[in-house]
Write a protein that binds this DNA or RNA. Sequence first.
DNA 1: CAGGTAAGTTCCACATCGTGGAACCGTTCT
DNA 2: AGAACGGTTCCACGATGTGGAACTTACCTG
Lengths: 250, 250
Amino acid sequence: MTGVQSIERAFAVLRALSLGPEGVTNLAKQVDLPKSTVARMLSALEAEGAVVQREAGGVYELGPLLDDLSPAGRAGTHLMRMARPFLNELVFVTNERAGLSIREGRDVLFLDHVSAVNEVEVRDWTGLRMPLHTIASGLVLLAHADAAELNGYFTEPLEQVTEHTVVDPTAITERVAAARGQGYAWTNSESVDGISSVAAPVRGTTGLVEAAIHVHGPAYRFPGEPGEQLVGEAVKEMAERLSNQMLRLD
Amino acid sequence: MTGVQSIERAFAVLRALSLGPEGVTNLAKQVDLPKSTVARMLSALEAEGAVVQREAGGVYELGPLLDDLSPAGRAGTHLMRMARPFLNELVFVTNERAGLSIREGRDVLFLDHVSAVNEVEVRDWTGLRMPLHTIASGLVLLAHADAAELNGYFTEPLEQVTEHTVVDPTAITERVAAARGQGYAWTNSESVDGISSVAAPVRGTTGLVEAAIHVHGPAYRFPGEPGEQLVGEAVKEMAERLSNQMLRLD
DNA sequence: CAGGTAAGTTCCACATCGTGGAACCGTTCT
DNA sequence: AGAACGGTTCCACGATGTGGAACTTACCTG
């Protein structure tokens, strides 16, 4: 099927604007279209809220609709604010690092990351993407996909990120089922060598799972003495408390 | 000027998908268009990266391009990760809260917010928007807009958020000029009663100002004994160190 | 296992919608 | 005052998008 010319042109304009605010004439040069065509694209995009004109007769920039549509942008304005106190509490309780993530296609996208203050040089996971099957957060997000989706996930090659990464569909299906059952999942060195992680699902305002919170730390000391079950249950409980607050807000 | 039908329809589909993943038939019902029309929109949006199909023949969801285009999404994947250690350090040095923000049209959008651990009930600014003229971050972002843009900002009514909000264009222009000169700006109770804030501009990989970092705290104790200049210079220096790292990455 | 149902995909005759050159308007500069 | 530049608007024209219908695939039921 061929494309849709106006959609291609509109997104060319949006991509040009992602480099910084620009006027009609400069945008026309960048996307190699007549000024009247670019003006019409901008007018239509402005009506949608995808661009805004900084002042009448002036430059255009990307608009708020894109934050509303962007999974990372949307989570950033609401879910992150709700989640932050729970992540802080998990850091306090476990003395490890905690984070929030969402699913993006075949990846986990880490939106927020909390460490103890003074860990200034920590490697922050904010903005990282990892394949779903390689990290606890991904397993709990897959646990709440339907069977066709899970099967669909296996139709493309699964990346072997470390030597410990599980890439056998049958084994992953079992782990996903276990995650569904107990409400949390663990991984160890499957995405980052030497790091273990536990995650639990967060329901959004619609009641559907739309994020995960996790705690991770060096495998040599985490989870340590409390054991996987006690720590897993603590993360699960925190995720449920966060989910309840999300549901109460609508 | 009339709109562009295909752009209107494409964004109708994107808005429908922002409620959750959906198939062609359901989307057709939601946007009240024939299945073939919706299929063509989806195919074009998929080619752009604005949507992805979870598996062949299955449901569609919003795609990674939207995070790439979204100002909040883009900052969330790169700038936030770079900024976090600097915010942590500012919290440590000032014993107040620190944050990162970007400009969105006439507003400041707060993307990240760091407090000391254990302040579990803190009111987090992540996701908040405030008009540019009411908060230090906004003044430093306006300080790096050109004169036409600043004049354009004044063509629309300026919101009186608190009784202390400065809404006189001449006075704002002076403050913006001062911010440009000294490299930081202060506000006190202009956006939130009883809160003072100091901000400095952050340059992105292109060398242009694209964000601000700030520290804020209760006005009765912040900035306290070090004084506005010493604290302002500290924030400015942190912003410059962050800017240097951003520039080095490209 | 055959038949029915539903969802996604593809085709193509048709006409509606998007195109882009040109003119216009306002602002800035010399 | 005139030139230059950028944004806006108009409209004759034809290229592109439309949507009904048919097709394909997968799943469910008796």
